[in-house]
Amino acid sequence: MGDHSHGSPQESGTVAKAQDDSLDKIQDPGLPPHRARLTDTDPRAAKRAERQVAILFAISMIGTVLFFVGYFAVGHPESIAEIRLQNMLLGSGTAFAMLGIGVGIVHWARTLMPDHEIAESRHEVRTEEGRQEAEEIVNTIVDESGISRRPLIRNSLIGALALAPLPGIVILRDLDLTKASASEIVDRLRHTMWDKGVRLTRDPSGTPIKASDVQIGSAFHVIPDGLNETEDPLNEKAKAVVLLMRLNPEDLNVSPEREDWHHDGIVAYSKICTHVGCPVALYEQHTHHLLCPCHQSTFDLTQECEVIFGPAAHALPQLPITVDADGFLVAQSDFHEPVGPGYWERP
């Protein structure tokens, strides 16, 4: 039906194509002659194919039996090796069961079913008469409903339809199960569990850390004291995790307002990447680089964790720390800025 609607809808007949004069085209010789298969001409070959198909179906049956062997003979596995064995038996049993049927059927179709290509003509997706009839029907419907003659009804209906879905959106407000107000939703991103005097403890044991425990070159994964006793430990942990490292104090370039944020070269930084929130947990003790394994943002510990590579766009927040009377490391306060990735209300 190719050529009856030439050109774009706006400018008909403008399509450019080669060899519009079809006289000079090489002629279609028509479907090539059918070539007989061995199974079409040789009854023995056909018989052989028939047997092969049956063998394939038999293999499928053996596969199903193999599945049962794996299931019942291995039983409830006692070790990883047995699970592996069972998985292999169940899997290969299923594979044989399925492939036997599939390959058998296809082999049957390829060798024994007729392979004459048949041409079928296409129909127009849309006929002109059909279009006209449909148009008439639509016009009748519109006319009988009177919607175009009675604009008051139409417009008030549009208004009602526009308003009616709104409750469906509003009712989703309590998807946030915390009953937090809009400002609380934003505000809680600014606060973590850290506060003046909260001890730094080891993750996951929760035991406090003495300043003398931290030697140069070591890295401690830290959670705030009491985290495991909170109501939602994972929520608190997702914001409060900290990486504690000790450097030679001379290696640190400390800005004036952060002079007392470290204790004798022991520094604590948020472990939550400022890119999209993965834990920035890879510490290289000689280069003093912190690397995020998710998207490779790299932070320089000696430069107050400025970004030196990768997609993060701002430095990791530092947790001001000091030691308490017993020599344990404690926070001086919460972080001075929100931890983690940037968001609209962050500045």
Partner: peptide
């Protein structure tokens, strides 16, 4: 010992 760039995990850690 924390070889190369690996951090040290001493016995108190």
């Amino acid at each position: 010992i924390g070889p190369q760039n690996m951090p040290v995990f001493n016995d108190s850690n």
